[in-house]
Design a protein around this nucleic acid. Sequence first.
DNA 1: AATGAACGTTGCAGATAATGCAACATGAAA
DNA 2: TTTCATGTTGCATTATCTGCAACGTTCATT
Lengths: 253, 253
Amino acid sequence: MSQTVDRALSILPLLAEGPADLGQVADRLGVHKSTALRLLRTLHEHGLVYRQSDQRYRLGARLFALAQEAMENLDIREIAHPHLVRLNEQCGHTVHLAVYEEGEVLYIDKVESRYPVRMYSRIGKPVAITVAAVAKLLLADLPEAERRAVAEKLEYPMYTARSTPNAPAFLRELEKVREQGWATDLGGHEESINCVAAPIRGADGRVVAAMSVSAPNVVVTADELLTLRPLVRRTADTISGEYSGRTPIKEAT
Amino acid sequence: MSQTVDRALSILPLLAEGPADLGQVADRLGVHKSTALRLLRTLHEHGLVYRQSDQRYRLGARLFALAQEAMENLDIREIAHPHLVRLNEQCGHTVHLAVYEEGEVLYIDKVESRYPVRMYSRIGKPVAITVAAVAKLLLADLPEAERRAVAEKLEYPMYTARSTPNAPAFLRELEKVREQGWATDLGGHEESINCVAAPIRGADGRVVAAMSVSAPNVVVTADELLTLRPLVRRTADTISGEYSGRTPIKEAT
DNA sequence: AATGAACGTTGCAGATAATGCAACATGAAA
DNA sequence: TTTCATGTTGCATTATCTGCAACGTTCATT
């Protein structure tokens, strides 16, 4: 809707792929170098873009700070966190919290069981939307039309033999999930990992978030993991209750 | 340098404080509502801004994804990570990796010892720059003039009685750190936590990152922690060597 | 050492594209 | 219902962005 801003913002995903110099940016934007320069300068002033020692541009530090603040402002995350921790203490496995937003599902919290490996690589990162248990719950709650639209537009990578293969299969799965009110991912993303998930609902009954417990086959079998379903569900319901009761009046000045 | 883009980008930090409606955004930008609307729409199309159910705007999901990708593209992080893990295995304590960027110091990696508590609240978040051991190392390496300028502009919050109180004290500390080539934070941020840090240098000798080991008093005394200094330093030097040797030719197409 | 290429940078004139206005639409409150 | 607040659209004005061409630098090559 605003050409200049549109161009400027298009630079960000471009730089996300890796550092680029002025010429490359200008080319990929389809504008003159001087134009690209001025856009980059503006992005730079706002800290969204950084100029490294070799003169090339890459994404800047302010971006992290913004993402952090945004994350911390999410009401659900704040409310849910202690419950996720408690659940983790009870069952010992990894616990996730995820939300849906315009075609994407992303983890906004995670409590890990054992290994502290690369935790940051997950939170904030888009979820494998076609297979993750939390994604199924979040998508299953969308209005029929939107659900269809999203499902059609997705890609269906076969992470494993059990991955959801295509849109029709996905929609069927969503329908099932919708009816039963919980979801699983049994080796659909990584061969040896299973998950059970439950929805967190707002006051109006709409699903506002979803949480899951994940564990590798070597620790517990899928069947054993499924015995946790009532516990997961109870936790989710507790969070739902707390979230619904709350009046989030926050008058920013 | 570009007014339109400048205005649009100013919306982001504004929304980072919390959700806001059209009127509030327009007011704080000092522009007409219609203008603000069009800017917000453009931000929205790029996923940087999300419109929640109550019509108010808040920061969007794409921001997280961008921050993620940006982080994963940092060469130093990639190179350093395995070494951080190894160090963690050897000493058992929390290990941090941080970089400096235009007035800010931020953690870009972390390997935690025990509790998986709120790891995400740290990575990507600006560091307590006036007290953190890694921050001292990074700032100590700046050219005299810039170091002064940064030090003058900082705030000096007294987290504890041992926090750096003001700019002169900070500059003295930086001078000391600069000479000795390592740094500590002994209860300057949180009363019971101590850190030892060492610099990671590029081929030209400039400090490109800093790493530290942190542990609470209850686990090891400050003196005990300081015995780890050689180990930390050796690890940092190893990373330095690996980072310098590398030719980072990455022709993005 | 000198030449040339590649890249980043600046000033300028023209024209596109952003702005504010005013009117309309919508929905909530009185 | 009326009223108020908020979001939205079309349009004329003009401020703002664009592309050009020339200049400055740096680096590699001859």
